[in-house]
Design a protein around this nucleic acid. Sequence first.
DNA 1: CTAACGTTTGTCCAATCGGTCAAAATTTGC
DNA 2: GCAAATTTTGACCGATTGGACAAACGTTAG
Lengths: 210, 210
Amino acid sequence: MDSPTRRPRTRIQQEKRELILEAALEVFSANGFRGATVDQIADAAGMSKPNLLYYFRSKEDIHVTLMQRLLDTWLAPLRELDDIGDPMTELRSYIRRKLEMARDFPRESRLFANEILQGAPRVMPMLEGELKALVDDKVEVIKGWMRAGKIARTDPYHLIFSIWATTQHYADFDVQVRAVLGPDRGADGRFEDAARFLEELYLHGLRPVR
Amino acid sequence: MDSPTRRPRTRIQQEKRELILEAALEVFSANGFRGATVDQIADAAGMSKPNLLYYFRSKEDIHVTLMQRLLDTWLAPLRELDDIGDPMTELRSYIRRKLEMARDFPRESRLFANEILQGAPRVMPMLEGELKALVDDKVEVIKGWMRAGKIARTDPYHLIFSIWATTQHYADFDVQVRAVLGPDRGADGRFEDAARFLEELYLHGLRPVR
DNA sequence: CTAACGTTTGTCCAATCGGTCAAAATTTGC
DNA sequence: GCAAATTTTGACCGATTGGACAAACGTTAG
């Protein structure tokens, strides 16, 4: 009675679903939702298309499952932003963590970017619910820091947006970054430079230090 | 002999090609290249599909034409970044101009983001040629400012990347920004807040002013 | 062994895709 | 006004798409 697309029961279902999601991440992030085909995903997962559709009801089913899991890990760094500890240090390590995620999980970043670019047709509820709630929460923390004079008084929402933008840029616009920088400096070097720059930017901006 | 897809000769060809490009911008930016259909574009342009294909050889032909035009206007603000005038003022107005473009031409921004996200399959040569050359040029200008002690010594490439990222974010991730901020503040208010925040960030970072 | 259950595949289908083509409708040059 | 050139359209095509389905295959418990 229970279809495998409900709740995985056997070990093999658990494994195959993971395999499919990994393959789908690869294909979706590289081609977008409409650009990806079920055949491509099935190929990448090493199985036939009907077999894949035995584990997931539809192409969209794969995508929403992927997005649901993604958002959790994607927001983890922001969740860790905590009131304990020095504000400036907290923010710096948040930026570093986000930059590390752009380096280590570029496919996840691009998958998310693709979805938002298309108007978030499949994750809008999550944005207005889970995401907004978390951001609102952290904005209060940041406001506290500002009131205490620990960091400059500025717009906390746009502060968070700017951190998202600058860090995810290195995953989403990777080919552009590479095209501009040339092949001289490898991926590690690029992220090292980016980390150093962002630290300086968020610390004291562009005003010359004397 | 000359097909209209070569060089527009008549007034009507000029007009219809413009009409198609405008419609294609709308459709491509909202759905990506593979997500957009020729029928959609033809519909948006108020003509039949075969008629559209009389003015452009193919779907890809429309896209490359669009991208070629786009890159020029897209890079205009950076071209204006000049050695004359106060460096800090120059950078501030570059940021402002880029932010205004994100506000006034979000479709162009999303079209570009879509293309880069997919690995820039149709504009890679432009990135490695035109774009890289321009950035290299402006990086030298910025380095001069740093040597003169006018702005802080930091990585000029990543400075430019960060400006691109923070400004275009408001076009590319618009739905997310709106979802997080809620409906309270209109589009004008959002961009006002963003402009103020970015000015403060690039001026003195997050260090509290006392 | 065998019945029940879970897994895999080959085949097929309707819908949609980008693009062609010949013919009709319209505009233009003289 | 009329012939030539340009513009527009309906009908059509092969390829690809997401998905359905029944039959075959494998596995496991009794």
